[in-house]
């Protein structure tokens, strides 16, 4: 039989990996922002400055969801408030 601490640590690491999967959609969103900015610059090259500024701010907004996932992964790996509960539950 496995040790409860090893099981809890393994489960929290797998959970951290799942939390980081939202990077896929975040990156797709950022790519969409950049693509729209390129289209806008191609249509109106004289507005390049303001479009670039807006694009960077939009990229920052799009990053938010990914950052939340990253924070949850950090919490699960480094802090993990649930690990004591898990061990107590597994020990019965």
């Amino acid at each position: 039989m496995y040790h409860p601490l090893a099981f809890a640590i393994a489960v929290s690491h797998i959970a951290a990996a799942i939390a980081l999967l939202n990077g896929i959609l975040t990156t797709m969103g950022q790519g969409k922002v950049a693509a729209s900015a390129v289209e806008a610059i191609a249509r109106q090259p004289e507005a390049k400055g303001s479009i670039t500024t807006t694009m960077f701010i939009g990229c920052g907004f799009a990053e938010t969801g990914g950052v939340y996932g990253l924070l949850i992964a950090f919490l699960l790996i480094f802090v993990n408030p649930l690990i004591n509960n898990n061990i107590q539950y597994l020990l019965g």
Partner: peptide, 16 residues
């Protein structure tokens, strides 16, 4: 909460 977590997560991620 969303404002503070955005800044915190970005800077903490880079630092780590």
């Amino acid at each position: 909460i969303s404002l503070s977590f955005r800044l915190f997560g970005n800077i903490l991620g880079g630092m780590i």
